[in-house]
Design a binder for these strands. Structure first.
Length: 609
DNA sequence: GTAGGGTTAG
């Protein structure tokens, strides 16, 4: 039954008010609709409409469409009910229904089906408003097949030049990881709005193309004034690039351009907190965080994770307590990733076990692999290898390579458990993963610690024969906005001569204060280095080169910030501590998982690393 | 005359 004839008591045309009164009444109802805030209010207006308007007037149809639209903002079931009353829903009505589903958690799967029904309906065609809605749902569901079909329809139906549709296509392809398609849609657009730029830049940032994102941002700046969205992506790019200088520039830009809004924007501030944490400036991150007027769970998570990364376990746990006590927010899975990481990075075994328990029993959060990984790593490093193995055995999912590597790592640190190490290494090699170079390196380290140099050589041969490529150690240091990269044993930098000269000096000074290098930690550059030049190869760690470059070029008092792609090894940890003492300089090294703050011979991370 | 595009974290 059509909505317009739902009530049998509707006055017939002959009883309708004169036309001018009719218009007035219509405007009155529209005004009521605009002010309605709930479904019950809407239903009252609807009842009133049914009683007082003429069913077949175009104006009444329009009013019903408006009612339908408002209902779609409140209640999906009722919206479906109303939809069934339309005899010939137009594209506006279809779009409203599809959007209502798309905005409803758990109903997104039905969006493409509805789109198909719309096509099959025959009497109506999708319009330029339809595609952004459906594409967004496809982006959310990673429905690459459906999205591509939509792309074809867009061109067939003549919306290929619409800006909104194209922005949605870029976002869809980007979300599905199809960078090439996203870029080609962007390139072929006739008229790009600031949103087009924002979307493509955001896609690049999300896929790790930080340099490319910065490049595009600079291009965009020549045409458009960046808005909050664009700046947010840029700040994330800075976090990815670990470029504190550029990050601070973004912060300044944001403060200058839209100072009043910055305090209000949770998203922008969250990006800033995250960026400062990742760039090693946890103190600035704290300031931004504390000045925020409103915080959501992401803000807290970023801060907790930031503290954890910087080895500030106490601050992280304090932060967690604040979150629980003072705010109405509920910790989520990521929160506990941060909390467990904090415990892990400081070797807080008791706390780690406790928080894991709180997560599962108080918050009913199903632990994921990362939570287990953190706990296993924590226990393993503290020497509770049996307990760690126990947890692995009782996990509901298969352990991944990362977890086995934690165990292997623990075995190599604890100097022993050769059989266990071999068993674990076998597990890693047999797992389906291609990237097990880390396991080879660790196993060889286990043998090196045990002075089994034959096996060390054997593993090197395996690696060569099987074509296993070890990810080369790489460290970078930013100086006056320019990033300098060093690989282990690198001699390609223009200051190589000075760097190695300084390293010789450092070696001598270390020797005089009784430092004994740990041969097993030497970077594996080639076999001769490892076996013959044991002593020599130790100074070839990539971060040692970057630190030396920093010592040579930075003014006194300025902390040296180094980023490393792999983990900081034990030996480097010790040496860097000594360097920070000898040269009275703060050194901040960020490796794969955390920041190490070195000052006056000690480090914020645990000594037992 | 009715509506529309982009949300982080490990």
């Amino acid at each position: 039954m059509a909505l317009s004839v739902i009530s049998p008591n509707i006055p017939s045309n002959s009883h309708s008010p004169p036309l001018h009164k009719h218009h007035k009444h219509h405007a009155y109802l529209l005004n009521l609709l605009a002010k309605s805030t709930s479904l019950s209010q809407l239903k009252q207006i609807q009842a009133h409409t049914l009683r007082t308007t003429c069913p077949n007037f175009p104006d009444t149809l329009f009013l019903n469409t408006r009612i339908f639209h408002v209902s779609s903002l409140h209640d999906l079931d009722y919206t479906f009910h109303l939809f069934s009353q339309f005899q010939n829903p137009n594209s506006f009505v279809w779009n409203t229904l599809i959007r209502a589903c798309a905005n409803n958690e758990g109903k997104k799967e039905e969006v493409f089906g509805l789109y198909k029904s719309m096509l099959c309906d025959g009497s109506v065609m999708p319009d330029k408003y339809t595609f952004p809605i459906v594409l967004k749902a496809c982006a959310y569901l990673f429905s690459i097949f459906e999205g591509r079909q939509l792309h074809c329809h867009v061109w067939k139906l003549g919306f290929g030049l619409d800006g909104y549709v194209n922005n949605s296509l870029i976002h869809f392809y980007g979300s599905c990881g199809c960078l090439d398609e996203a870029q080609s849609v962007f390139r072929e657009m006739r008229e790009r709005s600031v949103v087009s730029w924002n979307v493509i830049i955001d896609v690049l940032v999300r896929m790790g193309g930080f340099d490319e994102a910065v490049k595009l941002f600079r291009e965009m700046k020549m045409v458009f004034e960046p808005d909050g969205y664009g700046m947010q992506s840029m700040i994330s790019a800075c976090a990815g690039l670990k470029s504190l200088a550029l990050g601070m520039w973004c912060h300044c830009y944001v403060l200058r351009k839209f100072s009043s809004e910055v305090g209000e924007s949770i998203l922008l501030n969250n990006a800033l907190v995250d960026m400062y944490c990742k760039c090693g400036a946890v103190d600035i991150a704290t300031q931004v965080f504390e000045r925020m007027k409103k915080r959501d769970i992401h803000s807290w998570n970023s801060m907790i994770l930031g503290f954890a990364m910087h080895g500030k376990a106490e601050a992280a746990l304090e932060c967690f307590d604040c979150l629980v006590e003072e705010e109405e927010l509920v910790p989520n899975s990521i929160t506990f990733t941060g909390v467990l990481a904090a415990c892990n990075h400081r070797g807080l075994v008791v706390e780690g076990r406790r928080y894991f328990d709180i997560m599962v029993n108080e918050y009913n959060i199903q632990p994921v692999l990362e939570h287990y990984g953190s706990l296993v790593d924590l226990l393993g490093r503290a020497g509770h290898i049996d307990e760690a193995l126990d947890i692995i055995a009782n996990m509901p999912m298969k352990p991944d390579v990362v977890i086995w590597r934690s165990i292997l790592d623990a075995c190599s640190k604890k100097n022993g458990g050769l059989e266990l190490s071999e068993e674990v290494a076998r597990q890693i090699f047999e797992s389906e993963r291609v990237d097990c170079s880390g396991a080879y390196v660790l196993l060889s380290r286990v043998y090196a610690v045990a002075n089994r140099w034959n096996e060390v050589g054997l593993i090197r041969n395996w690696m060569t024969n099987k074509g296993v490529k070890k990810e080369p150690g790489c460290s970078s240091i930013e100086m006056y906005g320019i990033s300098h990269e060093f690989f282990a044993g690198d001699t390609s930098h223009s200051s190589t001569k000075e760097i190695y000269k300084l390293l010789d000096v450092i070696d001598k000074r270390l020797e005089t204060i009784g430092y004994v290098p740990d041969v097993s930690q030497a970077p594996m550059i080639d076999e001769e280095e490892l076996v013959d030049g044991k002593r020599h190869s130790l100074r070839l760690h990539s971060e040692r080169l970057a630190i030396a470059y920093g010592l040579l070029n930075l003014p006194p008092g300025v902390p040296i910030r180094v980023f490393k792609n792999l983990r900081v090894c034990n030996d480097c940890h010790n040496v860097t501590k000594l360097i920070s003492k000898i040269y009275n300089v703060d050194i901040i090294v960020r490796d794969r998982t955390r920041f190490h703050h070195f000052r006056n011979g000690s480090c914020s991370c645990m000594d037992y690393w």
